[in-house]
């Protein structure tokens, strides 16, 4: 087989990549492989696995991504779309922000969704439940965001949710 790049020399380096579920094969001769950065024992390892995993994520949840592209992690700025695209979570906060979006994938990867093992000493601090006031505050912010991008349907939904929570708080 001839090298696909120079089409002159015998191909000796064979690269397989899986992008969004499709397998692509590339066959190169040693000099073209070297030019393209596949020249030594380990260079094949470090690359492309995120592509692979990203493909896996987007295969799993194509529909969710379109709904949530605008929501961003307050800490690292990743959107759920970024996470799906890169196949990497941005920071610890992303897990909290996108927990519900991630859940179906986690289920698919691990089967079970309940940690059952060693517990970090600081676990108690991280696990603080969102108080009612905090939740109302967060929903208000989300509502304002929805208004600013003229998504009035979402904004109305959030307004009703806030009202319900406020009356719940009033009763207490």
């Amino acid at each position: 087989m001839l090298c696909q790049n120079c089409k002159r020399n015998e191909a000796t380096t064979h690269i397989k990549r899986i992008i969004n579920g499709d397998m692509a094969e590339t066959h190169l001769c040693s000099s073209c492989a070297s030019q393209l950065g596949y020249d030594d024992v380990f260079s094949g390892f470090g690359i492309n696995f995120s592509d692979f995993f990203g493909g896996f994520l987007s295969d799993t949840v194509p529909s969710v991504t379109t709904l949530t592209t605008v929501k961003r992690c307050g800490k690292c700025g990743s959107s759920f779309h970024d996470i799906v695209k890169e196949g990497k979570i941005g920071c610890a906060e992303c897990y909290r922000t996108f927990y519900d979006n991630l859940l179906p994938m986690l289920q698919r990867i691990h089967g079970r969704i309940q940690h059952n093992g060693k517990t970090s000493l600081k676990a108690g601090h991280i696990q603080q439940e969102e108080s009612l006031e905090e939740k109302i505050e967060r929903l208000k912010n989300e509502m304002n965001e929805a208004v600013s991008r003229q998504d009035f349907e979402q904004a109305a939904k959030l307004r009703d949710e806030i009202k319900a929570l406020e009356s719940e708080g009033g009763k207490k």
Partner: peptide
């Protein structure tokens, strides 16, 4: 690990365990 846990604040969640960049490593 326990020694480091004492002095650093690990990213951890009771439901999904130690938080990792790649979700395939979550849990333990």
């Amino acid at each position: 690990d326990t020694m480091l846990d004492n002095s650093l604040h690990y990213a951890f969640d009771e439901r999904i365990g130690y938080l990792t960049q790649c979700p395939t490593n979550l849990g333990t």
